[in-house]
Amino acid sequence: MSVYRLYRRKIIVFTTITAVLSLLLLVLSYLFLHMGYGSSKIIYQYRLNRIMAAILVGLILGLTGALLQSSLRNPLVDHYILGIGSGGVFAVMLFYLFSSNAYFLAVLTIIAAVGGLAALTITIMVAESVGGGDIAYVLAGIGVNSMFSGASLLLTYVAASKNPYVAYALTGSFIAIDPGWIPLLVVLSALSFVLYIFSSKPLNTLLMGDEYAAQQGYNPRITRLLIVLFSGIIGASVVACCGLIGFIGLVSPHIARLMLGTSDNRLVPVIAGLTGAILLLLSDNFSRLVLAGPFLVSVGEVPAGAIVSLFGAPFFISIMIRRLRGHGA
């Protein structure tokens, strides 16, 4: 225990530096391969983009999931449960409906962010009007989520005539990754890191309640609103790229907390981001193999969003049982 205390600060520094370095390494190797050094065309034109996108999206979803859970003091929320993701999908579908084929990816991202923001506003308003408890947020979120998912499903049939890959938006897939997404995702993950650095200290105080945060000098309502807003916007923007991927944002922070043995928000979001990246990369790899590989006749591939739980759930359950048996949360 004294070792833990001694090295605790070093752990924080080490994790953050590792995370940032591995991201940098990722981007550098991407650029290196992209220039076509020593690799086949199929790798750097197709697979590489996909891998990059899966890693970055997983990172963003895990990190913002951790921020959302801590700021709302609710272990049950993520961008999917709160309806932010489906709000984003809906907005993107609407955009396809009314626009021509020509579009910028950045525009699409902003539209998804606006849709997510609208859904988030509805969720918060509904939840706060009935008291703002844990259950209120989850129920309001599920309501908003199914509303926008349903509407998106209707729009899918129309929108698919303009972009056939749009149908994947509701399950989440990296099949149709455009290389143009990578720089956008890098920017978004950098933004989520900045958000994490600014919010980790106030989040630690918010964890112990509003009054506690107030006497620590933070206005709890404003702090919470800002963090939820920004992490919501970042979480929704990702939807424009790969569609709605649930579970990662919910489960990665919990895996991080259980592995670390603490809920310290200076550590959890980073580790949650790394967990999310690994989980989503595994899922995407598996989604490419499972139906196209040696097991079955080749019939195409399963969307990654559908596979995520396959890896995440058993890992989560096993780690939870190991930690919580006799310990309490």
Partner: peptide
């Protein structure tokens, strides 16, 4: 706010959310 944090301490009930222990 930051000066208030140094100046005083208020303590009522403390309860952490489930699954987010310290």
């Amino acid at each position: 706010g930051s000066s208030i944090a140094r100046l005083l301490a208020y303590m009522g009930d403390i309860s952490l959310p489930e699954m987010m222990g310290l």
